[in-house]
């Protein structure tokens, strides 16, 4: 069997965002790039799938500039993916054009059982690429999944939504599952894993190879702004009872939220 796992590189969550001088983007100098945290759950899920189905090939796929995103693929392969596909482009690609490219790359590989991805990428929080990809491939999906079971050529996937409600779907292979935290515990790459990853194949393709124009994005992020400086915090003194009285008064009279 064949499974794919889509991974995206994003700025580390510790990153303090600075804007470029023209405010049309963020300053990327000095940013530490990591695998999107939710994609780690997707990689783990793919490796667990392989462990349960020994003839499985796990392929990591990413779209981005090679010089930067190659590392993400190496990490995925160090964790246990067998090989990778790198769609090498410097072009800024929105969710729709990214999904188009991923779909062309996956389609050219032949049959597969599952595609795993993160529920969202924490850079833009767009949460659209996996479902667009599923639509282009004509396969069913379950999103924000925290529990899975596989059997009979199908996956049973659950997700928790508003108010603690749980929805459970059964999807026939091939299917797309987007991973939430709680789905599993991602393993760390072991030292032997890291050594082995260096010898695993990375297939590099261009947007041109896939027949996707680098100008096919319909949306573009512009005019970035940092949040306005907050007025300094009003510190409330006194003993706890006085503090509470004063706070409630401020919430009623000044903030007018009670």
């Amino acid at each position: 069997m064949r499974v794919f796992v889509c991974i995206k590189q994003v700025p580390d969550t510790e990153t303090r965002i600075k804007l470029t001088s023209d405010s049309q983007g963020i300053e990327t100098n000095g940013i530490k790039w990591v695998i999107n945290p939710y994609d780690e759950f997707a990689i783990e899920e793919a490796i667990k799938f392989k462990e349960a189905n020994s003839d499985t090939q796990v392929t990591a796929v990413t779209l981005g500039p090679k010089s930067r995103v190659n590392n993400a693929l190496l990490t995925a392969m160090a964790m246990g993916a067998d090989d990778s596909i790198l769609i090498n482009t410097e072009a800024p690609m929105d969710a729709l054009s990214t999904a188009k490219a991923l779909s062309a790359a996956i389609q050219s590989e032949g049959d597969y059982s599952m595609i795993f991805s993160g529920k969202l990428a924490i850079d833009g929080n767009v949460s659209a690429v996996p479902l667009m990809l599923a639509e282009f491939l004509g396969i069913p999906h379950a999103s924000v999944v925290n529990k899975t079971e596989y059997g009979d050529g199908a996956v049973t996937a659950s997700r928790e939504i508003e108010g603690g409600t749980t929805e459970t779907f059964k999807l026939k292979f091939p299917a797309m599952v987007t991973a939430n935290k709680g789905l599993n515990k991602p393993r760390f790459a072991s030292l032997p894993g890291i050594m082995k990853a260096k010898k695993k194949p990375i297939k590099e393709v261009s947007l041109e190879d896939l027949g996707v124009s680098p100008e096919s994005s319909k949306t573009k992020f512009t005019n970035f702004e940092l949040p306005p400086e907050k007025a300094p915090c009003k510190m409330i003194d006194g003993d706890p009872a006085q503090q509470v009285d004063e706070l409630v008064k401020l919430l009623q009279e000044e903030a007018k939220v009670l």
Binding site: P11, I17, L19, I26, I122, D123, N125, K218, F221, T222
Partner: peptide, 18 residues
């Protein structure tokens, strides 16, 4: 919309008339 979970905001420019 917010970007980076609210560390900044950005406008979204539509590049065609879809």
């Amino acid at each position: 919309r917010p970007m980076y979970a609210g560390k900044c905001t950005a406008q979204v420019t539509f590049t065609d008339d879809s």
